[in-house]
């Protein structure tokens, strides 16, 4: 039993690197909290949150279906319609983008690089700002929401689609090329059959996201359930806020369940 055997080998750690990470983090937090100042909480905050909770547990059931048509079910249906159409438009429009951005379809690294960049540019453009711009073009209403979702979703769908294309098996395409197929035939018989399940699954996934987004488009006047919600919030009609929130939660959960089931079946 000499001392050498008892020595536990110490793991070499990059101490300086670790401490500099901590230092940077600390600086970021000092900067963040120092800039915020002490939050002022309104004295009515407790009262209002109580009222909201009260409204959540005593929702205004009469709002679910009203003869005038400005009710919850119509709002939710409108929201769904915006999401369906927006997703469909973006699923069609993003296909050329995805082939452009896929490394194995575009010629050269720079070309696919520009495709990828334009997709990330579209992704970072907030959909609400897009909706504001479309409202200027087609007027307030659901159609502006459809266009905003359709354009914004291209960013994410195009990226996912292009990754799907990059991950496909090139064997069938080569085999077709060897038998003398032209580019269109290769695309139709070798590429599409491989990527369509993935495309459908991503489209459904994006549909789930779009349903959520469509619920907030109404905040700026682009249709859907958001408009009555904002009215109810500003007029402090908490029971109505409660029923709308419940409606949104139920709808989103149902859509997630259905879409999840379909996605499992597709892949």
């Amino acid at each position: 039993m000499n001392t050498a055997t008892r020595k536990i080998p110490r793991r070499k750690k990059n101490r300086i690197g670790l401490w500099s990470v901590y230092l940077v983090l600390a600086l970021i937090y000092i900067w963040a909290f120092a800039g915020m100042g002490v939050p002022e909480i309104k004295p009515t905050a407790g009262q209002i949150s109580k009222a909201i909770f009260n409204g959540l547990f005593h929702p205004d059931w009469s709002f679910v279906s009203e003869p005038g048509g400005e009710d919850l079910l119509h709002g939710l249906l409108d929201t769904l319609a915006i999401a369906v159409l927006g997703t469909f438009i973006s699923a069609l429009l993003c296909i050329p983008f995805s082939f452009w951005a896929a490394r194995n379809m575009s010629k050269g690294h720079t070309l696919s690089g520009t495709g990828k960049f334009s997709l990330s540019f579209i992704r970072t453009f907030p959909e609400l700002v897009m909706a504001i711009m479309f409202i200027k073009a087609v007027g307030p209403g659901s159609f502006a929401g459809v266009l905003a979702l359709g354009l914004h979703s291209i960013g994410m769908l195009g990226k996912l689609f292009s990754e799907e294309i990059e991950n496909m098996d090139l064997g069938p395409a080569e085999a077709l090329l060897a038998t003398g197929a032209n580019r269109f035939q290769i695309l139709w018989f070798a590429v599409l059959p491989q990527v369509i399940p993935g495309f459908l699954s991503y489209t459904l996934y994006r549909f789930e996201i779009n349903v959520r987004s469509a619920t907030i488009l109404g905040v700026i006047g682009a249709g859907g359930i958001g408009t009555p919600l904002i009215f109810a919030l500003t007029s402090r009609n908490w029971n109505r806020v409660g029923i709308i929130l419940l409606g949104i939660i139920v709808m989103v959960t149902l859509i997630d369940l259905i879409s999840g089931y379909l996605r499992k079946k597709i892949i």
């Binding site: 619920t215 907030i216 905040v219 904002i230 919030l233 929130l245 949104i248 997630d256």
Partner: peptide
């Protein structure tokens, strides 16, 4: 299920 903007508008009300 609740989008962040909705959460924000509720918290703004509070």
């Amino acid at each position: 299920t609740v989008p962040d903007l909705l959460l924000a508008s509720i918290f703004v009300a509070i």
